[in-house]
Design a protein around this nucleic acid. Sequence first.
DNA 1: CATGAATGAGTTTTCATTCAT
DNA 2: CATGAATGAAAACTCATTCAT
Lengths: 234, 234, 234, 234
Amino acid sequence: MGAVKTKRMPRAVREQQMLDAAVRTFGQRGYMAASMDEIAELAGVSKPLVYLYLNSKEDLFTACIRREAKALTEAVRAGVRPGLPADRQLWSGLTAFFTHTALHPDGWSVLHLQARTHGEVFAAEVAAMRAEIVAFVTQLILAAAREAHRDPDLPEREVAGLAEALVGAAESLADWANATPGVTARQSAATLMNFAWAGLGDLMAGRRWSPPEEDDSPEAGTGTAHAGRTSPVR
Amino acid sequence: MGAVKTKRMPRAVREQQMLDAAVRTFGQRGYMAASMDEIAELAGVSKPLVYLYLNSKEDLFTACIRREAKALTEAVRAGVRPGLPADRQLWSGLTAFFTHTALHPDGWSVLHLQARTHGEVFAAEVAAMRAEIVAFVTQLILAAAREAHRDPDLPEREVAGLAEALVGAAESLADWANATPGVTARQSAATLMNFAWAGLGDLMAGRRWSPPEEDDSPEAGTGTAHAGRTSPVR
Amino acid sequence: MGAVKTKRMPRAVREQQMLDAAVRTFGQRGYMAASMDEIAELAGVSKPLVYLYLNSKEDLFTACIRREAKALTEAVRAGVRPGLPADRQLWSGLTAFFTHTALHPDGWSVLHLQARTHGEVFAAEVAAMRAEIVAFVTQLILAAAREAHRDPDLPEREVAGLAEALVGAAESLADWANATPGVTARQSAATLMNFAWAGLGDLMAGRRWSPPEEDDSPEAGTGTAHAGRTSPVR
Amino acid sequence: MGAVKTKRMPRAVREQQMLDAAVRTFGQRGYMAASMDEIAELAGVSKPLVYLYLNSKEDLFTACIRREAKALTEAVRAGVRPGLPADRQLWSGLTAFFTHTALHPDGWSVLHLQARTHGEVFAAEVAAMRAEIVAFVTQLILAAAREAHRDPDLPEREVAGLAEALVGAAESLADWANATPGVTARQSAATLMNFAWAGLGDLMAGRRWSPPEEDDSPEAGTGTAHAGRTSPVR
DNA sequence: CATGAATGAGTTTTCATTCAT
DNA sequence: CATGAATGAAAACTCATTCAT
């Protein structure tokens, strides 16, 4: 099993083998630490062929990102049954998401860790995919409100923030699940539903948690502590 | 401000200057893209001195991680008043967390992005800090249950998952807040409390979201879908 | 015009197409910067065919040099009418030379620039052609002396030097004309005749310019100034 | 004798050693065929040091061109005595030129062959130096006319052409002398003076060689032969 | 201590060249 | 013959790291 010296393959096949090797190497070593030598060897071909087909390290990384992003979004889309109620849709989407990230940890590492730490160009590539998912979740939250026959009086901006939080929590859980042996996709999904869905329900019912009035002084000894985004020390 | 040509400083001070420069460079460029030349110049010292004090690039990076991890945990700890009810404690802890990550974006980048993308050794360093914070949050959740005079009958394992989710969501929000102008620490904290605390409350009241019985077939055609962390195809 | 997809041409024709493409590419890019890929594509054939017919890049370049050298010498020869007086013969030879180099700038670039800058082997190839032309010019100078019924008492060696100078000046002028828009072949030839022929006439009449006696000290402080070709410092 | 492993030299000295090695390598191999490895080894240093001091192959080549151009122009300038009559000035300038090119054949190859065949940027660098020399020669021709108390009625443009021809002839002769053992700088200078100076004298006296009226048809069989710069087949 | 001089070992990338079909 | 698949060898360039002064 593994890279048997198979010669003379059609281009399309070889390209996939190269992408497989690249995703694995980039996912484990990181973009910069991954060497084209290693990728070529893992793919079972010579370096010039990698360049002939994929042009450059940058292009190769971009191709990886695109392929993995497409695979992930399609897995999630395929996992969701359009007709179901909102919570069921969210559940099945999350399950598909955690299943896919568990089956393709290197692809997930490329998307979630590597692509975001190695240049705006790559980050933008992932941001496009993420935006699509956030939009999907936003629709689900609004649908849930409609199903409950409530007018949650939630400003659009807040809904966006909640969707962000939910997606972000899912991403973190995926990392954690991949790093923690024994956690299944269903468990991750259940944890997240329990953690968030009831909170969302309360929110839509108008019950929200109110912060106390200016009681704190974190960042001990610093008067500007509550300033949040005041220009940080550079 | 910055690298004034000041001679003859005690070693401890010089080391801090070097770490300042290193955190900033690693945070902005990434571990591999950061060059020792740049760090030394930014610190206003010669390269051999950096090696004399900090041995190697790896050691320097590790030192950065340790310093920033310590600073972050201490900031959070200092923000929490032990006597308060659990929700207030969580609120103040989150506010301290978001405040600190906003004031030290390069340090946060080193901890959350760079350390996790450049080798197991560095990742382990951060994992230790994270474990501490997760433990703290776990205590809060249990305290909340006690305060509600309920026995939520939550298995330890599930509590751990919830704490993970909460911490993970906070991390994601910190990234998002740092990348989105105009979001204050208080706002981030409020969003997260609204998003999660009610869900936690429901959970502790015994109301939980129940997944449907084995209805899904994610990763179409693959029987191992529910296997979560079964060894992925390598 | 150019590489139409015409199949099944006789070998000789295909070879000429390849040489056309090669001369053009070598002339414009230079020997090393020219890639076999580019040449094959410009010739409208596949790379292996180029190797089948012409063996290697070196052989291909040599073939280019030979073809262009032959074309140039034949053009000059064809331009000269054997029966005319020496000055008229020189004039028509020069005109033919400047006309040819203007019509085939890439060929001229290959001969005069590229072949001389990329290795002894190629330079020798051109040197052979040049020797032929120099010999022809030498004959013309001697003929001119005979026509003038003078015995100029020119040592053979000096005649050789003069022929060299004339040919060299012609080469320089050809480069200059090719780089300067608006200069015709007749103009170049006229400039050179005016520049040199009277000088030659005077020489043959025994009037020569005499250098002063050892007055100079070029290459200040170096006693070897008059040494010309003594082995230079290596 | 040669590159003894001398360590720890001041930067200025090492840079000259590197330029020496580079001029020699570029002059003999050509710009593209010269490898930075070879240059570094010949200079007796490691490659990184070459890059540290001279940035890139392009910059290194440019530095070579500049240094050699400066050396050549200064050698010629130093060889000319301002007070002398024009022919004596030209004689001493030519002698200095041929002496210098003979003593520094690699430098001359870099200037005359390599720099002109490897990119506009380099060619421009040499063109500047050449323009300076052509201007100097132009002044000499005009001075000669003045000394002869003649108004040669030569249009400025024609004088420029003659200066070009003279400089071009000198360049060609320098190449030839460097390739032909036994030719001294004085001999080259004398040949060129004999070849050209009398011709110039005749020209200034109003005696010029007149081409016959449209008698020729070089480039046998081609009707466009006399067109000089008609667009060549591309 | 501080610093300029110096390098070993690696990186990405390109190209002439060949074979199997 | 024609062509797509494939590579050995080398090139330019970079960087963490170390001494001698």
